[in-house]
Design a protein around this nucleic acid. Sequence first.
RNA 1: UCCUCAGUAGCUCAAUGGCAGAGCAUCCGGCUGUUAACCGGAGGGUUGUAGGUUCGAGUCCUACCUGAGGAGCCA
Length: 435
Amino acid sequence: MTHEGTLAYIEDIARHEGQRVIVRGWLHARRSSGKIHFLTVRDGSGFIQGVMSKAAVDEETFRLADHLTQESSVIASGTVRADARAPGGFELDLATLEVVGGSADYPITPKEHGVDYLMDRRHLWIRSERQSAVLRVRAEVIAAVRSFFDDRGFILADTPIFTPAACEGTSTLFPVQYFDETTAYLTQSGQLYNEANAMALGRVYCFGPTFRAEKSKTRRHLSEFWMVEPEVAFARLDDVIDLAEDLVVSVVTRVLERRQTELKRLDRDVSKLELVKKPFPRITYDDAVKMLNDKGQPFEWGGDFGAPDETLLANSFDRPVAVTRYPSKVKAFYMEPDPQRPDVALCVDVLAPEGYGEIIGGSQRIADYDLLLRRIKEHDLPKEAFEWYLDLRRYGTVPHGGFGMGIERVVTWICGLDHLREAIPYARTLNRLYP
RNA sequence: UCCUCAGUAGCUCAAUGGCAGAGCAUCCGGCUGUUAACCGGAGGGUUGUAGGUUCGAGUCCUACCUGAGGAGCCA
């Protein structure tokens, strides 16, 4: 079969109005009315409806279209025509059709399916309109994050995934055999290495997968997730919050600029995202506890917020809110205490609006050698494992700080999803390692 | 680890302790503007597993398996 026309991707189809193009992709859906077929084709860049009328093609081509099954791969050619009835504004009047690979009994039908069924077929589910839109937004979020840091003079310095011990000592680690006799652990944060990198390179960030063996079963947790972590020498808490604020605004703005089609396909209320502008409200943990109690949510000073607490707090604001100065007791060992009030830490959590919860956690780090050593001992961490980390305080210590932002949580929020597992191509959860 | 809920056709779900059902998908036929198209017909079942109660169990009881939602913890 020979096809006439210019090779085109569906997302660029508007540029080819009135022209003959060749599209290569898969059959997404087919509707037929006897003498006219409607073939929705997707090519990864978008979806378009091809219209084949019996009068316009030879008999063999028309019969081929009549028996075309869902997700058969095809090469087709036709003329691009603007049409108000088409969701994307354009249709393709088909002239030729070639099946590259057939597809029998495709398991994901246009009707409803359960979560387990879809997750078992995640490798196929990502072909759907919604799921492919999410993954395209995810790619935009990641691109926005990298541009943000690269454009500001940050150096990308990635941290190891095999680590010798716990970074924070609290979360559970995934052990793996490391050659013959040694046990390594999959990293749960690049934080500590990031601090060393910041002392070498000034402003740095790492971006990669992290692993947590927490036996969580909630819509906000994955055992493998991606996190971007900047770290800045000489930064204090306010600098860390400024950076977090700029990053979130930059990412949301760029997705709004470049991924309107996908957000629309996801039925996202973009007016909520358009409110994400500087400055974010900044409240202290003390304020937050008071707010919760004023709203009738019983909460005692000293604990960490649960998901309902976070939602209640975030719902008081129309944009992300920065909550600072949590009790040191509930936070990581390396966080600098507030000099005015040593029982709270110079830390910040950024809570997304609309109940999406914590998307960023960060702090100013302890700069003083003696205090850091004391904290390591208080947390029963083995000093030997942290000698290299203590070196950073032995040799030219400076105030510094940074944060981690969970990519999937940001994608979930921006896309308006109700579960983190749709924000990553292949989610790893407590009960899922396949496909 | 704990709490709650669910498991019946390929999928999504019905079925008072009394004949195993529907819609969609698949296959066949019809239809020149369909958007999860529509209309007619056909095929499709070890009710998660193992026990128990009962004249009789998809339904009640026990254990286990699998999954979902939540708690804790976190990004």
